[in-house]
Amino acid sequence: MQTEIRNNWTKQEVEEIYNMPLMELMYKASTIHKEFQKTGEVQVCTLLSVKTGGCKEDCSYCSQSARYNTHVQPHKLMRTDDVVQKAKQAKENGSTRFCMGAAWREARSNRDFEKVLGMVSEINDMGMEVCATLGMLDVEQAEKLKEAGLYAYNHNLDTSREYYDKVITTRTFDDRLETIANVQKAKISVCSGGIIGLGETDKDRIGMLYTLATLPQHPESVPVNALVPVEGTPMEGNKMVSTWEMIRMIATARILMPKAMVRLSAGRTEMTTEAQALCFMAGANSIFAGDQLLTTPNPEEDADKVMFNLLGLTPRASFKEVKEESVSV
Protein backbone atom coordinates (compact mmCIF):
# COMPACT_ATOMS: atom_id res chain seq x y z
CA MET A 1 0.00 0.00 0.00
CA GLN A 2 1.46 3.36 -1.05
CA THR A 3 2.13 6.00 1.59
CA GLU A 4 -0.38 8.84 1.35
CA ILE A 5 0.83 12.41 0.72
CA ARG A 6 -0.84 14.45 3.43
CA ASN A 7 -1.24 18.16 4.17
CA ASN A 8 -3.52 17.65 7.18
CA TRP A 9 -0.99 16.53 9.78
CA THR A 10 -1.78 17.42 13.40
CA LYS A 11 0.94 18.85 15.60
CA GLN A 12 0.62 15.81 17.86
CA GLU A 13 1.27 13.45 14.92
CA VAL A 14 4.37 15.45 13.95
CA GLU A 15 5.57 15.35 17.57
CA GLU A 16 5.07 11.56 17.75
CA ILE A 17 7.11 11.04 14.57
CA TYR A 18 9.87 13.43 15.68
CA ASN A 19 10.16 11.70 19.08
CA MET A 20 10.34 8.13 17.75
CA PRO A 21 13.41 6.10 18.82
CA LEU A 22 16.14 7.26 16.45
CA MET A 23 16.85 3.94 14.71
CA GLU A 24 13.12 3.36 14.19
CA LEU A 25 12.70 6.90 12.87
CA MET A 26 15.60 6.45 10.43
CA TYR A 27 14.21 3.12 9.22
CA LYS A 28 10.74 4.56 8.61
CA ALA A 29 12.18 7.60 6.80
CA SER A 30 14.48 5.42 4.71
CA THR A 31 11.56 3.18 3.68
CA ILE A 32 9.46 6.19 2.61
CA HIS A 33 12.48 7.68 0.84
CA LYS A 34 12.88 4.49 -1.20
CA GLU A 35 9.17 4.53 -2.09
CA PHE A 36 9.16 8.08 -3.48
CA GLN A 37 12.74 8.85 -4.46
CA LYS A 38 15.52 7.14 -6.38
CA THR A 39 17.86 6.15 -3.55
CA GLY A 40 21.46 7.04 -4.15
CA GLU A 41 20.49 9.99 -6.32
CA VAL A 42 21.41 13.39 -4.87
CA GLN A 43 20.64 16.81 -6.29
CA VAL A 44 23.82 18.92 -6.41
CA CYS A 45 23.22 22.67 -6.10
CA THR A 46 25.61 25.62 -6.13
CA LEU A 47 24.82 28.78 -4.18
CA LEU A 48 26.33 32.15 -5.08
CA SER A 49 25.93 35.40 -3.18
CA VAL A 50 25.28 37.87 -6.01
CA LYS A 51 24.79 40.82 -3.64
CA THR A 52 26.41 40.53 -0.23
CA GLY A 53 25.92 42.29 3.10
CA GLY A 54 24.28 45.58 4.07
CA CYS A 55 20.89 43.99 4.74
CA LYS A 56 18.44 46.01 6.87
CA GLU A 57 17.03 42.93 8.63
CA ASP A 58 18.08 41.97 12.17
CA CYS A 59 18.20 38.15 11.77
CA SER A 60 20.28 37.24 14.83
CA TYR A 61 22.24 34.48 13.06
CA CYS A 62 23.16 36.37 9.90
CA SER A 63 26.58 37.72 8.99
CA GLN A 64 25.02 39.90 6.26
CA SER A 65 22.94 42.14 8.53
CA ALA A 66 24.09 45.78 8.48
CA ARG A 67 23.38 45.89 12.23
CA TYR A 68 26.28 43.59 13.17
CA ASN A 69 30.04 43.93 12.82
CA THR A 70 31.09 40.69 11.10
CA HIS A 71 33.79 39.49 8.68
CA VAL A 72 31.49 40.15 5.71
CA GLN A 73 32.42 43.03 3.42
CA PRO A 74 29.31 44.38 1.66
CA HIS A 75 29.41 44.39 -2.13
CA LYS A 76 26.83 45.57 -4.64
CA LEU A 77 25.12 43.36 -7.20
CA MET A 78 27.62 41.38 -9.29
CA ARG A 79 27.96 41.88 -13.05
CA THR A 80 25.79 39.54 -15.11
CA ASP A 81 28.80 38.17 -17.04
CA ASP A 82 30.57 37.23 -13.80
CA VAL A 83 27.49 35.44 -12.44
CA VAL A 84 26.97 33.52 -15.71
CA GLN A 85 30.65 32.50 -15.63
CA LYS A 86 30.20 31.14 -12.09
CA ALA A 87 27.12 29.20 -13.25
CA LYS A 88 29.13 27.66 -16.12
CA GLN A 89 31.85 26.55 -13.66
CA ALA A 90 29.18 25.08 -11.38
CA LYS A 91 27.66 23.14 -14.28
CA GLU A 92 31.09 21.80 -15.28
CA ASN A 93 31.59 20.63 -11.68
CA GLY A 94 28.35 18.64 -11.74
CA SER A 95 25.77 21.05 -10.30
CA THR A 96 22.32 20.96 -11.88
CA ARG A 97 20.78 23.79 -9.88
CA PHE A 98 22.26 27.27 -9.51
CA CYS A 99 20.99 29.40 -6.64
CA MET A 100 21.54 33.17 -6.47
CA GLY A 101 21.29 34.94 -3.13
CA ALA A 102 20.92 38.70 -2.71
CA ALA A 103 21.00 40.23 0.78
CA TRP A 104 17.85 42.32 0.33
CA ARG A 105 14.97 42.70 2.78
CA GLU A 106 12.65 42.56 -0.20
CA ALA A 107 13.03 42.63 -3.96
CA ARG A 108 12.34 46.08 -5.40
CA SER A 109 11.17 46.65 -8.94
CA ASN A 110 14.27 48.60 -10.02
CA ARG A 111 17.34 48.24 -12.27
CA ASP A 112 18.96 45.66 -9.98
CA PHE A 113 15.84 43.49 -10.15
CA GLU A 114 15.85 43.78 -13.97
CA LYS A 115 19.52 42.68 -13.92
CA VAL A 116 18.60 39.62 -11.82
CA LEU A 117 15.86 38.77 -14.36
CA GLY A 118 18.56 38.85 -17.07
CA MET A 119 20.81 36.54 -15.02
CA VAL A 120 17.92 34.10 -14.52
CA SER A 121 17.18 34.04 -18.23
CA GLU A 122 20.80 33.39 -19.28
CA ILE A 123 21.38 30.62 -16.73
CA ASN A 124 18.06 28.98 -17.60
CA ASP A 125 19.20 28.91 -21.25
CA MET A 126 22.23 26.86 -20.11
CA GLY A 127 19.91 24.01 -19.08
CA MET A 128 20.32 24.54 -15.34
CA GLU A 129 17.51 24.86 -12.82
CA VAL A 130 17.70 28.46 -11.56
CA CYS A 131 16.84 29.30 -7.97
CA ALA A 132 16.91 32.70 -6.26
CA THR A 133 16.56 34.08 -2.77
CA LEU A 134 15.96 37.83 -2.83
CA GLY A 135 13.90 38.43 0.31
CA MET A 136 10.19 39.20 0.24
CA LEU A 137 8.36 39.15 -3.13
CA ASP A 138 4.97 40.36 -4.29
CA VAL A 139 2.91 38.42 -6.87
CA GLU A 140 3.95 40.64 -9.79
CA GLN A 141 7.67 40.18 -9.04
CA ALA A 142 7.19 36.42 -8.70
CA GLU A 143 5.44 36.33 -12.09
CA LYS A 144 8.29 38.29 -13.71
CA LEU A 145 10.83 35.84 -12.30
CA LYS A 146 8.76 32.93 -13.62
CA GLU A 147 8.62 34.52 -17.09
CA ALA A 148 12.42 34.95 -17.00
CA GLY A 149 12.79 31.21 -16.37
CA LEU A 150 13.13 30.95 -12.59
CA TYR A 151 12.58 27.35 -11.50
CA ALA A 152 12.64 27.69 -7.70
CA TYR A 153 12.55 30.35 -5.00
CA ASN A 154 14.11 29.95 -1.57
CA HIS A 155 12.40 31.58 1.40
CA ASN A 156 13.07 29.79 4.68
CA LEU A 157 10.72 29.93 7.67
CA ASP A 158 13.86 29.69 9.88
CA THR A 159 12.01 28.45 12.97
CA SER A 160 8.57 28.06 14.55
CA ARG A 161 5.96 30.80 14.66
CA GLU A 162 6.29 30.86 18.47
CA TYR A 163 10.09 31.34 18.51
CA TYR A 164 10.30 33.54 15.43
CA ASP A 165 10.42 36.96 17.16
CA LYS A 166 13.34 35.77 19.34
CA VAL A 167 15.35 35.48 16.12
CA ILE A 168 14.01 38.29 13.89
CA THR A 169 11.96 41.39 14.71
CA THR A 170 12.10 43.30 11.40
CA ARG A 171 9.57 41.08 9.63
CA THR A 172 6.89 38.64 10.75
CA PHE A 173 6.34 34.93 10.31
CA ASP A 174 3.23 35.79 8.27
CA ASP A 175 5.36 37.95 5.93
CA ARG A 176 7.34 34.80 5.15
CA LEU A 177 4.21 32.74 4.52
CA GLU A 178 2.86 35.48 2.24
CA THR A 179 5.98 35.39 0.05
CA ILE A 180 5.72 31.58 -0.18
CA ALA A 181 2.07 31.93 -1.25
CA ASN A 182 3.02 34.55 -3.89
CA VAL A 183 5.71 32.25 -5.28
CA GLN A 184 3.29 29.31 -5.46
CA LYS A 185 0.69 31.49 -7.22
CA ALA A 186 3.30 32.19 -9.91
CA LYS A 187 3.83 28.39 -10.32
CA ILE A 188 7.44 28.58 -9.11
CA SER A 189 8.79 25.69 -7.00
CA VAL A 190 9.22 26.61 -3.34
CA CYS A 191 12.40 25.88 -1.41
CA SER A 192 11.67 26.45 2.29
CA GLY A 193 13.12 24.99 5.46
CA GLY A 194 14.88 26.31 8.51
CA ILE A 195 17.84 26.45 10.84
CA ILE A 196 18.44 24.47 13.99
CA GLY A 197 20.76 25.67 16.73
CA LEU A 198 19.17 29.12 17.16
CA GLY A 199 18.39 28.40 20.83
CA GLU A 200 15.03 26.87 19.99
CA THR A 201 13.48 23.82 21.69
CA ASP A 202 12.40 20.52 20.14
CA LYS A 203 8.86 21.91 20.30
CA ASP A 204 9.95 24.76 17.98
CA ARG A 205 11.55 22.35 15.53
CA ILE A 206 8.34 20.32 15.51
CA GLY A 207 6.34 23.55 15.01
CA MET A 208 8.41 24.58 11.98
CA LEU A 209 8.08 21.15 10.33
CA TYR A 210 4.34 21.16 11.10
CA THR A 211 3.92 24.53 9.31
CA LEU A 212 5.80 23.31 6.22
CA ALA A 213 3.97 19.96 6.11
CA THR A 214 0.53 21.59 6.36
CA LEU A 215 1.02 24.18 3.62
CA PRO A 216 -1.62 23.69 0.86
CA GLN A 217 1.27 22.44 -1.28
CA HIS A 218 4.46 21.02 0.25
CA PRO A 219 7.70 22.83 -0.62
CA GLU A 220 9.48 21.09 -3.49
CA SER A 221 12.70 21.45 -1.51
CA VAL A 222 13.23 21.56 2.28
CA PRO A 223 16.70 22.72 3.41
CA VAL A 224 17.76 21.65 6.91
CA ASN A 225 20.50 24.00 8.11
CA ALA A 226 22.66 23.70 11.22
CA LEU A 227 23.59 27.13 12.53
CA VAL A 228 27.21 28.00 11.86
CA PRO A 229 27.80 30.65 14.58
CA VAL A 230 29.32 33.82 13.12
CA GLU A 231 31.47 36.17 15.21
CA GLY A 232 29.82 39.56 15.58
CA THR A 233 26.23 38.28 15.49
CA PRO A 234 24.04 37.90 18.61
CA MET A 235 24.25 34.11 18.17
CA GLU A 236 28.06 33.90 17.97
CA GLY A 237 28.18 31.94 21.24
CA ASN A 238 25.63 29.28 20.23
CA LYS A 239 26.85 25.69 20.24
CA MET A 240 26.83 23.63 17.03
CA VAL A 241 24.04 21.05 16.97
CA SER A 242 24.86 17.34 16.87
CA THR A 243 24.61 15.04 13.86
CA TRP A 244 21.79 13.20 15.65
CA GLU A 245 19.70 16.38 15.81
CA MET A 246 20.22 16.90 12.06
CA ILE A 247 19.22 13.29 11.37
CA ARG A 248 16.06 13.64 13.46
CA MET A 249 15.03 16.76 11.50
CA ILE A 250 15.84 15.22 8.11
CA ALA A 251 14.04 11.95 8.85
CA THR A 252 10.93 13.71 10.16
CA ALA A 253 10.85 16.04 7.13
CA ARG A 254 11.18 13.02 4.82
CA ILE A 255 8.22 11.21 6.47
CA LEU A 256 6.01 14.32 6.47
CA MET A 257 6.86 15.45 2.92
CA PRO A 258 7.80 12.29 0.96
CA LYS A 259 8.09 13.94 -2.46
CA ALA A 260 10.25 16.90 -1.34
CA MET A 261 13.98 17.16 -1.89
CA VAL A 262 15.37 17.33 1.66
CA ARG A 263 18.57 19.32 1.54
CA LEU A 264 21.51 18.81 3.86
CA SER A 265 22.56 22.47 3.90
CA ALA A 266 24.64 24.69 6.20
CA GLY A 267 26.83 22.91 8.73
CA ARG A 268 28.09 20.19 6.38
CA THR A 269 31.71 21.35 6.83
CA GLU A 270 31.61 20.20 10.45
CA MET A 271 30.21 16.78 9.51
CA THR A 272 32.26 13.67 8.77
CA THR A 273 31.53 11.52 5.71
CA GLU A 274 30.00 8.96 8.10
CA ALA A 275 27.64 11.60 9.55
CA GLN A 276 26.59 12.73 6.08
CA ALA A 277 26.02 9.10 5.03
CA LEU A 278 23.58 8.70 7.93
CA CYS A 279 21.77 11.88 6.80
CA PHE A 280 21.41 10.46 3.26
CA MET A 281 20.14 7.21 4.77
CA ALA A 282 17.58 9.18 6.79
CA GLY A 283 16.18 10.79 3.62
CA ALA A 284 18.41 13.70 2.61
CA ASN A 285 18.84 13.80 -1.18
CA SER A 286 20.17 17.27 -1.93
CA ILE A 287 23.35 19.19 -1.03
CA PHE A 288 25.09 22.45 -1.80
CA ALA A 289 28.46 21.99 -3.51
CA GLY A 290 31.38 24.42 -3.69
CA ASP A 291 33.70 25.90 -1.07
CA GLN A 292 31.40 28.73 0.02
CA LEU A 293 27.75 28.73 1.10
CA LEU A 294 26.81 32.43 0.88
CA THR A 295 29.25 33.59 3.58
CA THR A 296 30.01 30.40 5.54
CA PRO A 297 32.38 27.57 4.60
CA ASN A 298 31.18 24.48 2.73
CA PRO A 299 33.02 21.24 1.79
CA GLU A 300 35.04 21.64 -1.42
CA GLU A 301 33.77 19.97 -4.59
CA ASP A 302 36.63 17.43 -4.74
CA ALA A 303 35.80 16.18 -1.23
CA ASP A 304 32.17 15.74 -2.31
CA LYS A 305 33.23 13.78 -5.41
CA VAL A 306 35.26 11.43 -3.19
CA MET A 307 32.24 11.03 -0.89
CA PHE A 308 29.87 10.37 -3.83
CA ASN A 309 32.19 7.67 -5.15
CA LEU A 310 32.59 6.09 -1.72
CA LEU A 311 28.84 6.00 -0.99
CA GLY A 312 27.79 5.15 -4.55
CA LEU A 313 25.79 8.37 -4.96
CA THR A 314 24.94 9.88 -8.35
CA PRO A 315 23.92 13.50 -9.15
CA ARG A 316 20.24 13.99 -10.02
CA ALA A 317 19.57 15.33 -13.53
CA SER A 318 18.18 18.86 -13.86
CA PHE A 319 14.43 19.36 -14.52
CA LYS A 320 13.89 15.67 -13.69
CA GLU A 321 10.43 16.24 -12.18
CA VAL A 322 9.26 18.23 -15.23
CA LYS A 323 10.58 15.58 -17.63
CA GLU A 324 8.86 12.79 -15.70
CA GLU A 325 5.54 14.67 -15.67
CA SER A 326 5.67 15.27 -19.44
CA VAL A 327 6.37 11.56 -20.07
CA SER A 328 3.45 10.44 -17.88
CA VAL A 329 0.91 12.83 -19.51
Rank of each mutant, 00 (worst) to 15 (best):
V14G: 03
I17F: 02
Y18M: 05
N19V: 05
N19L: 11
M20C: 02
M20S: 13
P21A: 10
A29M: 06
K34E: 12
E35W: 05
E35P: 08
Q37M: 09
E41F: 05
V42T: 07
T46S: 14
T46Q: 09
L47Q: 08
L47W: 06
V50H: 00
C62H: 06
Q64L: 11
S65R: 03
N69G: 02
Q73K: 14
M78N: 02
V83K: 03
K86S: 13
K88T: 03
T96C: 15
A103P: 01
R105T: 11
R105I: 14
R108L: 10
S109G: 04
R111I: 08
F113I: 04
K115A: 14
N124D: 12
D125W: 10
G127C: 10
M128G: 01
T133D: 06
G135I: 07
L137A: 04
D138H: 05
K144I: 04
Y151A: 11
H155L: 07
D158Q: 10
Y163F: 13
Y163P: 01
K166F: 13
K166P: 04
T169V: 03
R171H: 13
F173N: 06
D174Y: 15
D174K: 14
I188G: 01
I195L: 07
I195M: 07
G197R: 02
T201V: 06
R205H: 10
G207A: 03
M208Q: 14
T214I: 00
P216E: 01
P216C: 00
P223Q: 10
V224I: 12
A226F: 12
L227G: 02
V230Y: 00
G237P: 01
W244N: 13
M246V: 15
M246E: 04
I247Q: 02
I250C: 10
A251I: 05
A251Q: 10
A253E: 07
K259V: 12
V262S: 01
R263L: 09
T269D: 05
Q276M: 15
A277F: 01
F280T: 02
F280Q: 02
T295A: 03
P297M: 07
P297N: 06
E301S: 10
A303H: 08
D304C: 12
M307V: 04
M307S: 05
N309W: 04
G312C: 06
P315S: 11
R316A: 13
R316W: 05
A317Y: 04
A317I: 07
K323I: 09
K323A: 15
E324I: 15
E324L: 15
V327G: 01
V327Q: 14
V327C: 11
